Amino acid sequence: MTRDPRIDAYIEARADFAKPILAWLRDRVHAACPDVVEAIKWSSPFFDYKGKPLANMAAFKTHAAFGFWSRQELATGKEGEAMGQYGRIASLDDLPSAGEIEAQVKSAMALIDSGAKSPRAGKPPKPEAEVPPELAEALAADDAAAATFNAFPPGCRREYCEWIAEAKRPETKAKRVAEAVGWMREGKRRNWKYEAC
């Protein structure tokens, strides 16, 4: 059972209310996971298992926090109240029993052992760009530029549309439309100057 002296120092430097909380949580992690490796990451104590983050804890002015790296899979119902899964921990009474915490540590270990990756919330696709009327009119008059524009992926079309739409003065907008149509006639994307050859 390896204990990192930096975590000893971290606990010792915290407020008196937090010391027993952090020490108790640390003991629960070690009891459930004898192979745990302690570390300091982002200025807080971390517990790693098989080279992967397992859990972390921290202490603040009025509360402590503890959480598992696989937050979605090990939800406790107090997510969002503070860092971690147990909300604001002001005393040991705010935590589940030793058996419950240790069971959750073992569940977190099982997730790491299974190789399961935490699902990331996917970003919804951006809506299709609204084509500025000036650009729509210019494309209607130029079949080659229109064909290129329509063949672009949505992100490329959006770059042209946003670039033209953000122009404040009519002269600037007209200049950008003319440049855009010329570039599209040549099959160029909006930021063609920066693309690797």
Rank of each mutant, 00 (worst) to 15 (best):
R185N: 07
R157Y: 10
W163C: 12
C156D: 08
A121G: 04
T148S: 12
W163V: 09
K175G: 13
K173I: 00
L111E: 07
A145H: 03
T172L: 13
P127I: 06
A110R: 11
K168M: 10
A141N: 13
R169C: 08
E171K: 07
E134K: 02
P170D: 02
P133S: 03
A136W: 05
Y160A: 09
P125M: 02
F152D: 07
E179Y: 03
G122F: 05
R120I: 04
P153N: 13
R169M: 08
P119I: 11
W163S: 15
G115I: 01
V177N: 11
R185H: 13
G155M: 06
A178D: 14
A178M: 10
P124T: 06
E159R: 15
F152C: 10
A174G: 09
E128R: 10
P119K: 14
A147E: 05
N150E: 00
A151M: 07
D113T: 07
V131E: 00
T148F: 10
G122R: 14
E159F: 14
E166C: 09
E166F: 05
A165K: 08
C156W: 08
Y160G: 08
A145P: 02
K168H: 08
K126E: 10
A165F: 06
R176W: 14
L111H: 04
R158Q: 14
G182L: 15
A140F: 04
S118A: 08
R120L: 04
P153R: 14
R169V: 09
I112N: 05
T148V: 12
T148G: 06
K123Y: 02
D143L: 13
A167Q: 09
R158E: 14
K123A: 03
L135G: 01
E128G: 07
A144V: 11
R158M: 15
A145G: 01
D143E: 14
E137M: 07
A145Q: 05
A116K: 01
R185T: 13
R120W: 04
P127E: 01
P119R: 12
P125K: 02
R120E: 04
R157K: 13
P127R: 05
G115P: 03
R158L: 15
A138K: 03
G122S: 08
I164H: 11
A136I: 04
R176H: 12
T172V: 12
W183S: 12
A147D: 03
E162Y: 10
E166S: 13
A121V: 06
E137G: 06
A140R: 02
A165D: 08
S118F: 03
